[in-house]
Design a protein around this nucleic acid. Sequence first.
DNA 1: CCCGGACAGATAGTAGTCCTAACGGTTGCT
DNA 2: AGCAACCGTTAGGACTACTATCTGTCCGGG
Lengths: 228, 228
Amino acid sequence: MNRPAIFDALSEPVSRRITSGLSRIALVLRTQAWRGAEPEGVTPTQAQALTALREGGEGMRLAELAAQLGVSAPTMSVRVNALIAKGLVVREAGVDKRSIRLRLSPAGAELLERSARWPDFLARAVGVLDEREQEDLLRSLVKVIRTLQVEGDVAPQRMCVTCSHFRPFAHPDASLPHHCAYVDAPFGDRHLRLACPEHEDAPPPQQRAAWERFTEQAPGSAPGSAPA
Amino acid sequence: MNRPAIFDALSEPVSRRITSGLSRIALVLRTQAWRGAEPEGVTPTQAQALTALREGGEGMRLAELAAQLGVSAPTMSVRVNALIAKGLVVREAGVDKRSIRLRLSPAGAELLERSARWPDFLARAVGVLDEREQEDLLRSLVKVIRTLQVEGDVAPQRMCVTCSHFRPFAHPDASLPHHCAYVDAPFGDRHLRLACPEHEDAPPPQQRAAWERFTEQAPGSAPGSAPA
DNA sequence: CCCGGACAGATAGTAGTCCTAACGGTTGCT
DNA sequence: AGCAACCGTTAGGACTACTATCTGTCCGGG
């Protein structure tokens, strides 16, 4: 579809410029990290831990939480203790007396409720994209993150594409082609989730099959787009 | 185009899930930051400064560099001194004796040459997207970053869309609709740059006009997509 | 001419982040 | 019973980056 052009020779690969753009956004997220957290009296990483704790369901173990946030267990231990001292998290003994179960306290849940809008400066910027561009962007991000997960660069995510309830392209409707067996309803790319509380890891063969179906289909935005 | 569905009521807004995905990628970039930099004997932030120094052209001032990387001047001062001590950057007196001009040393340029492939783990993940998806993704990122810049959340970027040489949709060819007056050649969305050495800030009225043309056109991927 | 305000950058001092190494208590296998 | 594996914690050190403060330079006014 794209004809050769002078710029094809002049430019670095598209994928590299994309990573440069993603890095730029990562930079902004880092420098603006205190915006939402500080007014609530927590640090950005503490806020991050609270979010993970909510998304991961109740009774998370310490090591789980650490893996989810990509930090070492000692780091997470200190972080969690700070949150416990602030009364935002409670620690309970697990069945195994070595392990612990971490839960949000009511105060922690309420804090998350209040500050759930961060990072809305970025959400506003994303809002300049039209409906279709957002859907395409979300689908692309899902694909990239899933690949990072397979490569071991990031911990398993609670995403639709690895969920046992996910049935890609189960319906002919191009607008709502997928099916979620948990709520038993069709959905589209725009509904794809990255952190679903109802997520349940599918067995690897099912994951692979679903992934193949999901990626091999032409994107919903372009029914007959160039396979050649 | 998208019909109402159960999931429209169940899900948080698409823009919020997108920011969640972007945050996830930012997390990976942060945890993997030492991968490319450490083997070269520099820290990630030092590598970042070197990159900015190359992209920004020769003879950058300290404050400029600090703004580009979203850190305070003192922070950048310390960082630059470390790079000077390592012989990767040279400091020269500016015309104004208060200011300094920072340049990459040959050793610094050579180091960048060697480690320019970071973060290629992310570039590889982006590589699972097909050509068209990458083009769409790049265009969306450009739009988001440009918006962040207008909002003041990030320093001015050397992007095509703010460049005096940029002529959006100057050609009828849907594959190469834009024109770069600097190299005097047509180019497409897939050639859009985020850090062009030849960038020259266009005057605000021209920027606004170009931005309007650039965003109001239907994305190249969908000639007749929903204006309603 | 020189004096003060504005500016550019450098230097403390402090706080947050996060790692590796080493340590106690539990569990389960032999 | 003994020992290895496991879970979480504590200790120490490195990196990042902020605010406040300081030194030197430029420029305009008296």
